[in-house]
Design a protein around this nucleic acid. Sequence first.
RNA 1: UGGGGCAUGGUGCAAUGGCAGCACACCGGACUUUGAAUCCGUUGAUCCUGGUUCGAAUCCAAGUGCCCCAG
Length: 361
Amino acid sequence: MNARGTVFVGLSGGVDSSVAAWLLKEQGFDVAGVHLRLWESPDPKTVEERASQLKAVTEILGIPMRILDWRENFRRDVVGHYLEALKRGLTPNPCVTCNRLFKWGQLIAYARSEGADQVASGHYARLARQPDGSVILRMAKDRSKDQSYFLSALPQNVFQSMNLPLGELSKHEVRKIANRLGLAEGLNQESEDLCFLEGSDQAAFLREHAINLLVSGPIYDSAGVLLGQHQGLPLYTIGQRKGIRIAAARPYYVLRKDVQQNALIVGFVEELAFNRVETRDTNWVSGFAPDLKKSYQFKLRSTSKLLPGHCLLDEKGDIIAVLDDAARDITSGQRLVVYDGDTCLGGAEIFKAKYQNKETE
RNA sequence: UGGGGCAUGGUGCAAUGGCAGCACACCGGACUUUGAAUCCGUUGAUCCUGGUUCGAAUCCAAGUGCCCCAG
């Protein structure tokens, strides 16, 4: 047994998680790779390639690896909720769900049952243990790569067992390490769309798996003038420009979706403004209650600017974010994450965004 | 069926008789562990027929189509 304990590292087959595993080994941990099989690729060649990549990586790193087949649960819990949310006119964020349920929730439970002390990943974010024993979540040193957004739905007990070796490194440094180890060859390109789309786009995925959700309907402008036909509301999200297929003097953007009427409402960019965001399922990483007088920063997307504002709490204790300046595309189903400087306090699912005149507040 | 106006990429508009451009849309790429946005790039047009001219989207004539005014 190793003095620093046993750590399971989630290996995707990409550069980041591979380097994370190597760093932990260097730090003296007993490292084991765990690869989660979450989606059945339609192409058997892809499956083989991934398997041989993973094998090559673990050989270079000199660590054992096990593969966990969680496809059935993933389809039910992540893809199922994704399709259900689309049906309700929301714009779901399946990566947040997947992180909460599988990449951390299930994996930590598994690791504990197997006697591991920690679970690590290639996420770019930092953890800091407080004097009282609690762990706070902070943005990665390389803020442009920060992925704390995706971890904001996790409970404190998960952070207690979490290890994020890449938090202090830049992407450039990680690449250099990968090159030095000879990992760069044949590894997955990092950029990925939704993992279960398997390289095709959402429209193709929905046509194959949920064609019943794609019902054509009218496109109106905000004055109610019929402008055209859409191909199914799930193909659109708030603030979207592409795919409306209406030529005008200026580009049209999606303003909202009317699920009842199966109608898409579009307008010009200045009609897109939200400064009050209501949420549900709020999760505070450190059980922290926000100071309602204090100014915080909000992220509405993993890689986006921090938007200043303050917090209110509704009667159920969920966040209501009031932004100092209106933002463009705040969308129901997406995640709002609250930061205090570089500390990620928590987040919640957006269920309503609106524009409220400051004077009437 | 009298008078007037208009006809240019898929759409809306530019181009003193001198290399047909722009915006929107579309398509592709970059970015991105969600949807998007954004950025970059490609494709694509002078209604038809004659005439004037070194040279016509542009001037002239006829045709075709559309719009407006008037009975």
